[in-house]
């Protein structure tokens, strides 16, 4: 039967996001459950990418939905429900990261490219990422590289390059201008590139491309 998906029809209590939000704002448990069902994989995924530690990611996941279900009236409908949840998750993650360590770069501090940054690594890579298998060793190096980013840079990188959100959505989630998103994303990529080059232009390249 074309255009009919019985699973979705049974699962979905609310036909539109507007109906779901209205029910949420009236405090309906069913609406909270529906939102969790729809968005928890996405919120967990982004929490894992923002936090080093799986337990911290789970805490962020729980805090995000507790906050969203308890304060649904704060949702003004200017963005999609998904973007709003990303914003709550990002804020919850930042709060935890701030508590955990002294920031080397303040989130409020403007990050300019023209601050004397000079690429540390200019050697070429000896493999093509399209043709290589993502080995567990390389995956570990990539995770390490991302963990080295400041919280401000990591958040921009996670939303744009890992979650695939637009510059405008990322700006909304992070509460910064679109030009600041672009600068932070570029700065994050440069830093990741430096880190990976140290590995991929050296001894690791041969192993990684096998």
């Amino acid at each position: 039967m074309m255009g009919y998906n019985p699973t979705v029809a049974i699962m979905k209590t609310y036909d539109t996001e507007t109906e779901l939000v209205e029910a949420l704002q009236q405090g309906e448990k069913r609406a909270c459950a529906e939102m969790v069902k729809q968005f928890s994989p996405q919120v967990y995924r982004v929490a894992r990418r923002l936090m080093d530690d799986p337990q911290e990611a789970e805490d962020v996941l729980q805090e995000t939905f507790i906050s969203a279900c308890d304060h649904a009236e704060d949702f003004e409908g200017r963005s999609s429900l998904g973007t709003w949840l990303y914003r709550i998750a990002n804020n919850a993650g930042l709060m935890r990261l701030r508590k955990k360590r002294i920031q080397t770069i303040s989130i409020d501090e403007p990050i300019e490219l023209d601050d004397g940054y000079v690429p540390r690594q200019l050697a070429d890579w000896s493999f093509d990422p399209d043709e290589m298998v993502l080995t567990s060793e390389l995956r570990e190096i990539m995770d390490e590289a991302a963990a080295e980013l400041s919280d401000a840079l990591r958040a921009a990188f996670v939303m744009r390059d890992l979650e695939g959100l637009s510059t405008a959505e990322t700006a909304e989630i992070l509460g910064i201008s679109e030009s600041a998103v672009k600068v932070r994303l570029h700065r994050a990529r440069l830093q990741l590139r430096d880190y990976l080059t140290a590995y991929l232009a050296g001894n690791g390249a041969e192993e990684a491309s096998q």
């Binding site: 994989p41 995924r45 789970e58 399209d130 993502l134 890992l162 990529r189 440069l190 990741l192 590139r193």
Partner: peptide, 26 residues
Amino acid sequence: DTLRKTVTLYHTMPADPLPDDVEERL
């Protein structure tokens, strides 16, 4: 070239699925 490869690599990185026990506790 290496900046482009960096972005490509991260685009191919698989995401963590939501584990059943984490979902249950939520």
